[in-house]
Nucleic acid binder design. Structure first.
Lengths: 355, 355
DNA sequence: TTGAAAGCGCTAACAC
DNA sequence: GTGTTAGCGCTTTCAA
C-alpha cells in the first residue's frame, strides 16, 4: 500500500540488499531511514503506508529507503496494527489434486488482496490438525480455510475463533461457520444415472471413512440405487489409493461381483483403476469405473471411466469471498455455498477432440 | 516447546475458545494469565517456553492458561526473539506435481522442526517473484527454498539476504547459495540411451525456455545425440502442456518427422501425449515418448512412455537439511547436492505387477 | 504536514 | 525461582 510496484522493484536493484558488498544492512530500522531522510520515524511510517506527506518529504524518504535497503518488519507492524494479513489453509494433503488446485486458487486470491498463505497438511491426523488450529490462533490470522476431518468438523461447531472460518469440501449441515461444497447427492445421482444408462445394474461403491463428504456421497449412492430398485453394495475404506486398490482387488476375485464401481474421490478411483489393471481386466470392456475428480490420468484412460469434475478454482475463490464478506460484516448468518459438479462423459466422445 | 502436546490438546477442549458461551476471550494477554496465576508475566513466559519454574508455579500457570484460553501472540514473540520460525517456499506453480510433492516434503520437515511454511506461486512472473522475495525479507523468515525463474536465478547470485537461501530444481553452477538438483545431463543421457536401445535414431526434443533446468536438459540432449553421431532436433517452447501440445501437433504433420520425442518436464510430456492422441496416432506403436516426472497419468499410459523419476521427497528434505546446516554454521562454503534420477522403464514390464 | 510520546504483547537481563 | 525493568520495530494518537 502506498508505494507502487515499480518503486519496490527499483528498490530491489539498488538497495543495499541487492549489492553484495554494501555495508551489511545490519537490521536497518525505520529510525535509520528517518535519520537519513532527516525526518521522524512517524513520517517514514506515514510515507510507507500511504499517509499524508508533502511531495518533498515523500521523495526524501523514498530515497532513504532505497539507499538503506530498508524492509519493514512485518512482525512489528502486525503487533502494532493487529492485522496479520495472513490466511491459514488447512487440508489433509496438498498432493490430493483437489487440494492442490484449491491452494492455488486461495493463494491467487490472497495475493490479489495482499495477503499471504500459511499452508498446513494434516494427513487426516487429528493431533496435527489441532496443533495447526492452535497455530492459527497464535498467528492471529485474518481468516481460515479448512477441509476438516470428520472428528474436527464436529468440534469446530462448538469452538469460536477470533477470525472467520470457512469450511471447504467437507461440511455437514449449515452450522456455526460459512462453507463451500458441491452438491454431492446430485453428483452421485448423475453418476449412477449415467451407469444405469449404459446398462449396468450391479454397481459397487468404495467410500472413504474419514470425511463428511465421503459420507454424503455414500448416502447419495445408496439413495440413488434404492430409488431405482437396486441393491446398494458399498464398502467403506481409508481414503487412499493403496487401500482402494487392495479392497477392489479382493472384490474383483469374488464370484458374482458388480460390473461397475463408484469411488468417492480421486485417490480411490485411482486405486480402483490400478486394481482392474493388475487383475488383467480392461477398463470399459470388463469393468466400468466412475467417481470424482477430473484428474489428468483419467483423461488418459478415456472410455470406461466417468468422473464428476469439481469446480475447484471456484470453490477456492468462493471460500475467500466468504472470508472477506464476514470480515466486513461479522454478524450475517452463516452461509453455505453449494456448487454443482460437472459430469465428464468420455464414453460419448469416441475420437478425442481431433482436429 | 516446554509444554506437551497433551497439555495443549486438553487446553483446546477446556479453554474459553472452546466454549461457545464463555466470556468472549477478548485478547487474553500474558498479563491476564499472570494475574490469574498470581505470578508475574515473566514467570508465565518462562513456563510457556520451558524455562525454570517450580512445580507448583508451573501447575498454577498451566491452569490459568487453560482457564483463560490464552494463546501467545506470535508476532510479539517474534519481534522480541527475532526468530520467525517460518520457512518461505517460492515455486512457479504448486500444481506442477514436482512442486506439489516438494511442498509436502518441505512442510513435513518444517512441521517436525516446529516451523511454518509460507507458500508462494510466481507463475514464472518475475514481478510476482520479486514481490514475494521482498515479502520474505519483511517476514524475517528463517530460510528460503526457491525454484527461481532463470532471470531471477541470475539476480539471486548478486543479492544477499539475512537468511539462508536454497535453490531447488533450478540452479546453475555452484554460486552464492546452496542448491539441490538432479543430475540432468546424466538423466537425459539415460533417456536417450534407452530410446537408442529401442532402435530409434530420429529423436526430437521439446524443451522449456524459462528455467535453467530445461536448459541443462537441452544441452544434455544435444550432447548425447551428437555423441552417438545423431542430429539433435530440438525446439524451445513455453513450458506448458498447451504450448507443448500445439508444437508437437504441428511437428507430427511435418513430413520426415522423428519417431521418438523427449520432453523436458512433466507438463511438456503431457502435452505431447495429448498431441499424439489427437493426431489419431498410438503411443508406442506410432510414436514413442520420453521425459521427466513420474506422474500418475504416465503410469496409465504404460508402454511407449519412458520417464525419469525425480526423488522429490529427498530433494525437499535435503533442501531443509541445507537450510538448517547453514543456520548452524553460516560460513561453510555454498554446497550443491546432486541427486540421481531414476529411469521408469515400463517397456520392460509387459504385465503390470500382476499378483 | 510533521514530531514526540506511548504502547502493541512478549522475552531477556538483571536483581533479589 | 521469581519479579522488575526495558525494549524488540513499528504505528498512532495528540499537539504543534
Amino acid at each position: 500500500m502506498g508505494m507502487s510496484y515499480e518503486f519496490w522493484m527499483e528498490t530491489f536493484s539498488h538497495s543495499a540488499a541487492g549489492t553484495p558488498n554494501a555495508a551489511s544492512n545490519h537490521a536497518v530500522g525505520i529510525r535509520d531511514v528517518a535519520t537519513r531522510a532527516g525526518v521522524s520515524p512517524a513520517t517514514v511510517s506515514r510515507v510507507l503506508t500511504g499517509g499524508p506527506a508533502s511531495r518533498e518529504t515523500r521523495e526524501r524518504v523514498e530515497a532513504a529507503v532505497r539507499e538503506t535497503g530498508y524492509r519493514p518488519n512485518l512482525s512489528a507492524r502486525r503487533l502494532r496494527t493487529r492485522a496479520s494479513r495472513t490466511i491459514g489453509l488447512i487440508v489433509s494433503d496438498i498432493r490430493n489434486p483437489f487440494f492442490t488446485s484449491l491452494s492455488r486458487a486461495v493463494e491467487d486470491a490472497a495475493y490479489r488482496a495482499d495477503m499471504r498463505v500459511v499452508l498446513c497438511n494434516t494427513d487426516e491426523n487429528p493431533t496435527r490438525e489441532a496443533m495447526y488450529l492452535r497455530l492459527m490462533q497464535e498467528e492471529r490470522i485474518t481468516g481460515l480455510i479448512i477441509a476438516p476431518t470428520r472428528a474436527t468438523a464436529d468440534r469446530l461447531e462448538t469452538m469460536t475463533f477470533d477470525f472467520p472460518v470457512v469450511l471447504v469440501d467437507r461440511a455437514g449441515p449449515t452450522g456455526a461457520h460459512d462453507s463451500v461444497v458441491i452438491d454431492n447427492s446430485a453428483a452421485v445421482d448423475t453418476l449412477i444415472s449415467h451407469l444405469l444408462g449404459r446398462g449396468h445394474r450391479r454397481i459397487g461403491g468404495l467410500f472413504g471413512n474419514t470425511s463428511s463428504t465421503a459420507q454424503e456421497r455414500h448416502r447419495g449412492y445408496a439413495a440413488a440405487m434404492l430409488a431405482h430398485g437396486l441393491a446398494p453394495e458399498a464398502r467403506m475404506i481409508e481414503p487412499s489409493a493403496e487401500a482402494s486398490e487392495r479392497e477392489l482387488a479382493r472384490w474383483l476375485t469374488e464370484p458374482d461381483r458388480p460390473d461397475a464401481f463408484v469411488g468417492s474421490n480421486g485417490q480411490i478411483v485411482l486405486g480402483m483403476a490400478r486394481a482392474v489393471r493388475s487383475a488383467g481386466l480392461a477398463i470399459d470392456d470388463d469393468v466400468v469405473l466412475a467417481g470424482f475428480d477430473n484428474e489428468m490420468w483419467t483423461e488418459m484412460i478415456g472410455r470406461g471411466l466417468t468422473v464428476i469434475e469439481q469446480p475447484v478454482e471456484e470453490i477456492g475463490r468462493s471460500a475467500m469471498d466468504l472470508l472477506f464478506r464476514r470480515l466486513e460484516r461479522p454478524d450475517v448468518a452463516p452461509c453455505k455455498i453449494v456448487l454443482a459438479g460437472r459430469l465428464i462423459d468420455r464414453d460419448e466422445t469416441p475420437a478425442p477432440r481431433a482436429a
